[in-house]
């Protein structure tokens, strides 16, 4: 019966679902970055006219979902599932947002792989015949995540040069069995890899092997080469993790990318924005994928993209107790 499976970990959709519409809300720093013209909305500050950073993040996600419904002339009642993920304890942002809509809710935690995992699950539900319209959403907020995983926002300290900046913003997308737009053609969900790295600032180092594992698995399962895709983009390895991934691919797998490997974490900010190695956070890959890349796919400027979203699955408790950081990467192929 497993006629949609390819190889060990890849699912190839027989009628690939469409990403019909997306909506992106970027935070203030992201709104000054190189992608500023591609976002649908930019918040002027981290508070988003709310009373706390947490409320701001939830409101951003709610607005993104509402805007996607509005753009596609859908009522919540027409949507079969709401699949969402975020970083805050027990994914409370997603649950809060879900409480605003009469849509069955699937909440998931997979750190910064959120976009890839939520979209994969949405595509599986649709191609499996269990749903025809699914809204996927994700968010992260620098000021809520930093405090949860590291230190208070106003605590004065220096960050190491390989550290990354948790991006602020929220995105939503409508995935459906019919319509127009690029299609999710396959997905490769990854395995958890532990490297023994404990430094909560070294996400790139912790996640690079997971990214390589999923990329290679995807190519093996689908019998494709790296040059099949116009763009292979990792989620949030940052500059340091990106270099590490290229080196590992070369030295361990003798795998070379024909100049099409990039990283969302390196595209969200300019070098002079004081963000060290680049961006991270759930919304990092979502902001890049659902803005610029989505538009280029719609226009036909590029036609085949592999998003390899990366995630560090540590918790504040595990981190404080000195445990190492388990990492994961999920890949989705989007083609027009």
């Amino acid at each position: 019966m497993k006629d949609k499976r390819r190889g060990r970990h890849t699912v190839q959709f027989s009628s690939p679902p469409y990403i019909v519409s997306t909506y992106t809300i970027a935070g203030p720093l992201e709104g000054q970055g190189p992608l500023r013209d591609h976002f649908d909305a930019i918040s002027k500050d981290g508070m988003y006219e709310q009373k706390s950073f947490e409320k701001a993040e939830a409101k951003m996600m709610e607005d993104a979902v509402n805007e996607v419904l509005r753009k596609t002339a859908n009522l919540p009642e027409y949507i079969d599932y709401f699949v969402a993920s975020d970083l805050l304890d027990q994914i409370v942002i997603s649950s809060t947002t879900a409480s605003r809509f009469p849509i069955p809710f699937i909440g998931m935690y997979s750190a910064c792989t959120a976009t890839a995992l939520c979209s994969s699950i949405a595509a599986m539900l649709i191609d499996g015949g269990y749903a025809s319209k699914v809204v996927v959403a994700t968010s992260s907020h620098n000021s809520t995540a930093e405090r949860q995983f590291r230190y208070p926002v106003e605590y004065g300290m220096q960050r190491p040069p390989y550290s990354q900046w948790t991006a602020t913003g929220a995105t939503a997308a409508l995935v459906a069995d019919s319509g127009e737009g690029p299609r999710i053609t396959s997905c490769t969900l990854g395995c958890v890899i532990e490297t023994g790295i404990k430094d909560p600032y070294d996400m790139g180092g912790a996640m690079a092997p997971a990214a390589l594992d999923t990329i290679v698995q995807h190519f093996e399962d689908t019998s494709r080469d790296p040059d099949y895709y116009d763009l292979i983009i990792t989620g949030d390895l940052g500059e340091f993790g990106h270099e590490l991934l290229k080196e590992l691919a070369q030295s361990q797998m003798n795998l070379k990318f024909p100049n099409n490997l990039s990283d969302c974490g390196m595209l969200l900010y300019n070098k002079d924005q004081g963000v060290d190695s680049g961006a991270s956070g759930c919304v990092c890959s979502a902001l890049v994928l659902f803005s610029k890349i989505y538009k280029e796919l719609c226009k036909g400027a590029i036609s085949k993209v592999l998003l390899v979203a990366t995630g560090a699955l540590h918790s504040p408790t595990s981190c404080h107790q000195g445990e190492s950081i388990p990492s994961i990467a999920h890949a989705i192929a989007i083609e027009r």
Partner: peptide, 17 residues
Amino acid sequence: LNTSRVKLTQKQYQQLV
């Protein structure tokens, strides 16, 4: 590491990083 694609032990990988 929990992958056959990187033939390094955790210590060797941390050293590289």
